[in-house]
Simulated scan of single mutants.
Amino acid sequence: MREHRGVPPILTVVAILVLGLTLSATAPAAVAAPTGKPGDVVRSTEITDRPEARMASAARVFDVTYLSADPRGRLVEVKGSVSLPKKAPGPGGWRILAWNHSTMGLGDSCTITDSLGKDKRGSRDKWLGQWLRDDYVIAATEYQGIGGPGVHAYLDGPVAGKNTLDMVRAARTVVKKYVGTDTSNAFVSFGGSQGGHASMWSNSLAKSYAPELKNAATIAHSVPTGLSDYFAAIRPGFPNVVVPDYVTYFSYVLAGLKVSRPDIDVDSYLTPLGRTVIKNAQRLCYAESGPATKGLTVGQLVSRPLADGPLLPALRQYTRLPTSGYGAPILLQQGYLDVVAFTPLTGQFVSRLRSNGVNVTYRTYPTQLHGLSTAQTLEAVKWANTRTTWPR
């Protein structure tokens, strides 16, 4: 936020008039907002011949730009990809997996959906490729702002949920265009960490936002819950926390809050160093953010307690997860030793879901940290295949 102080009013008026005349003479016309409806495909390109784009189990891969929501509710272009199985579709068409990636960063260079084959050890194909081998189309969104217009609002659940559902819509259009067959209208949403948060929101919104689709099941692991509880304790001098990349996550959350809630003066809570870190978070990818913030603590970034004033209530609303209203069965997977998404908070969240009648299966893994092993991910695929009835 810029401040303008000490400028005489008459000079301000003159400057505005001169600037207006200059812009009218030299500036290009404003770019029109995209027209269409949520999920419309703006453009699609086959990228199967790019080695970094195709997992071993994918027959064809398409780079897709489609329309979906931003934090203001406007339709904007969002990036994603569609990967097709090698087996031909059956009479009812392929099933769809809406895969939501974990934290990759907020900048335009932090995309992953067009580089799913860029994995030297082939581990991604072992766990994500299994969905392809089980006859699912993989519809993968980048979320609004990553590789597209605007800044990504990290953990803005309603936006990520809509981006996910619109990616499913776009995938069905792409399959029809390039293969000539229909897909099932049912899909499974799946993701971990940030992606788990997005998958839960897509489940919550599916019935009202995309009634033509059927969210058959949701799988989420390492889901951030109770983030506002973390932030409530942060104040100047807050001690170092032994959590991997804690400053990176902190900066992403506040950078996202600035995008989603511009009415909250986030900068007023930050030191000059903090403002620089948050600004950099809008462009740095996850792999870059760790080294860039090495040695810093969140206590160095804040100038007053985050619990003061309007920031914490806004953050609580911004990062929330619904505790009721889910239309599809849920599998929540949690590493017991996870120090990013804490097991006690996840357990409390599950208890609230169950008390509200939500169909949730909860599995914890005693030796697992943040994320899942390949075996645990394959367990989730099996759960989706055996627990789900497909209206195809």
Score class of each variant (00 low, 15 high):
345 L>R: 12
17 L>A: 15
91 P>D: 05
24 S>L: 11
82 V>L: 05
159 V>F: 00
370 H>F: 14
83 S>A: 08
163 N>D: 14
277 V>I: 13
42 V>D: 12
77 E>P: 02
91 P>S: 07
80 G>P: 00
157 G>V: 09
110 C>T: 02
82 V>Y: 01
318 Y>V: 08
203 N>P: 06
81 S>R: 06
262 P>Q: 14
289 S>I: 03
167 M>C: 08
310 P>C: 13
239 P>S: 08
8 P>I: 15
193 S>I: 03
70 D>K: 09
11 L>S: 13
269 Y>F: 04
44 S>A: 14
360 V>F: 06
243 V>S: 05
155 L>D: 04
382 K>W: 05
294 K>C: 02
274 G>W: 05
141 T>F: 04
328 A>L: 03
181 T>R: 12
10 I>H: 15
147 G>C: 04
327 G>A: 14
229 D>M: 08
286 Y>G: 02
12 T>M: 15
127 W>T: 15
383 W>T: 10
128 L>E: 14
149 P>L: 05
15 A>E: 13
238 F>C: 03
108 D>P: 06
326 Y>I: 00
132 L>A: 04
267 D>F: 01
201 W>K: 07
41 V>E: 05
148 G>V: 01
289 S>M: 14
199 S>C: 05
206 A>I: 01
285 C>N: 11
312 L>D: 02
157 G>S: 10
193 S>N: 11
336 Y>R: 10
195 G>I: 04
131 W>I: 07
134 D>W: 03
212 E>L: 02
320 R>I: 00
355 S>A: 14
88 A>Y: 11
59 A>V: 03
342 F>H: 11
161 G>K: 06
13 V>Q: 11
130 Q>K: 08
219 I>T: 04
212 E>A: 10
361 T>H: 09
54 R>S: 09
182 D>V: 07
120 K>G: 09
180 G>Q: 13
376 Q>R: 10
102 S>N: 13
214 K>P: 00
364 T>K: 07
19 L>I: 03
358 V>D: 05
99 W>L: 13
149 P>D: 12
222 S>P: 01
327 G>D: 14
273 L>R: 13
244 P>W: 08
155 L>Y: 12
99 W>N: 13
20 G>S: 15
352 R>Y: 08
295 G>A: 13
384 A>G: 12
173 T>M: 01
156 D>T: 10
26 T>D: 08
278 I>Y: 02
91 P>I: 05
147 G>N: 09
8 P>V: 14
350 V>N: 10
319 T>L: 10
310 P>E: 13
92 G>S: 11
229 D>V: 07
316 R>W: 02
331 L>V: 05
298 V>D: 08
171 A>Q: 05
310 P>T: 15
29 A>M: 12
319 T>M: 10
78 V>M: 06
343 T>M: 13
10 I>D: 15
248 T>N: 11
